[in-house]
Design a protein around this nucleic acid. Structure first.
Lengths: 234, 234
DNA sequence: CTTGCTAACTGGTCCAACCAGTTGCTACAG
DNA sequence: CTGTAGCAACTGGTTGGACCAGTTAGCAAG
């Protein structure tokens, strides 16, 4: 039941990914051969191959038959999905980077939502707005965060842009591990009920400028909190 | 030499991914068993497993031992790296979505570059600016596009935000297949030498507002071209 | 010193088997 | 007739070993 058995190939993948993102395997280096890795991790070579295939897809390594599998410069070949893996590898600045991207996305999502939201999307938005008000009554930050995220989820859909949706997914991919930290940074933004209401109203009214302004103000609060934290304890 | 042999596992992966993104495998459906797929594609089961592992990592399927491997709603679980796969699956709107995301990113990259570019980054930027001028002399759009991309590549670095870099990577992931189409849409933006110069100057001067304005004007040209094309031949 | 071949690597693929969960049907007990 | 226990018959997870197909490096002949 509570069996959290991880496939061995995932264990190998995690280990290699951490080594690469953590810089222990330098760019251009060849990683150990599949046969070596299978011995070292005491698993079958097939498991290693599955792990390497995933590394390859993530843009972390380049494999070539006959030659060695080499580590790529992931800052050039990696995709946005790597972002949530970076903090785990010890990169603190990645958190600020992620929130900056979110800020830029949020403003645009707000504008496009105001521009493109149809009746269906407006209904959903109103429902989430009500849910958010209810969550504020609870006084529990975790509940509030959940409701706030659901609000943005609806806005992302309303913006009718699959790229925004996918980028948003990538940003939230590792949220479970970061939720506790997120609440700290998002605190001011979460409790700014007035601006949140303004955002919702602007989207419902189709007021693109007001929507952008509100979204920018909301995310600016979190960015400020992050900057202060970063400056205080680097 | 010209041997473009694709690994069989990649062939299986491409086929399954296309079926999922193309909607031929519905969300919630179980995909055929590994043994069935290995028979159907006339490959070994390990090749199928490698393909499925990649699907899993891409957020397209959920596998569970004992149970069937089910198709996930990739619009909820997929990352930005899926974007460049969508056009291949027949989704035309994904191109516009991608360029809208690029527009929003570009403006922010310009601002952050103006804010954070150090001497080293400024040197690189000046070099690329010179390269761009040289490319304009050639009169060849492909050369110009290359130089223009290199300019933005430097700007992305100058913005000192790993999330911007990774998102930018994701957006350009499938560029080779789209290069011909890209030149058509980017034509006006590419030939707007004045605004490009203004962007470079603003970044070098640390003028964030001017940088944002220039970047926005540049990307707006491409968005307009895209909208016109979309409206003309939907 | 250059060239060419070979041997020892690398990854790519396959076969066959077994382990470990899930699912559904069947037969037995109530 | 109903409910449940249990036995197949699936599913994915893992292993071992073998062989093919490229790359690389070293050695030997020119």
């Amino acid at each position: 039941m509570a069996d959290v058995r991880t496939p061995v190939s995932t264990a190998v993948y995690d280990a290699l990914r951490a080594d690469i993102l953590g810089g222990r395997l330098a760019v251009g280096d060849g990683i150990p051969s599949e046969r070596t890795l299978s011995e070292r991790h005491a698993v079958n070579r097939h498991a290693v191959r599955e792990a390497v295939k995933r590394l390859q897809q993530a843009g972390l390594v380049q494999v070539s038959q006959g030659g060695a599998t080499r580590v790529l410069d992931w800052s050039r070949t990696g995709g946005l999905e790597l972002l949530t893996d970076l903090p785990g590898a010890g990169d603190i600045g990645a958190v600020r980077a992620g929130y900056e991207l979110r800020a830029c996305l949020a403003a645009e999502i707000a504008v496009r939502s105001a521009q493109r939201a149809d009746d269906d999307a407006r209904d959903h938005l109103r429902a989430r707005a009500a849910g958010l008000i209810a969550a504020r009554q609870a006084g529990d930050d975790a509940t509030l965060l959940k409701a706030y995220r659901e609000l943005w989820d609806v806005l992302v859909d309303a913006s009718r842009n699959i790229a925004y949706r996918l980028a948003y997914n990538s940003l939230l991919a590792g949220e479970d591990t970061l939720r506790a930290a997120a609440i700290v940074f998002l605190r001011d933004e979460l409790h700014d009920a007035g601006t949140t209401e303004a955002l919702i109203g602007a989207v419902l009214d189709g007021d693109q400028d007001a929507a952008r302004a509100a979204a920018t103000m909301l995310t600016a609060r979190t960015l400020r909190a992050l900057t202060l934290t970063e400056a205080a304890a680097p």
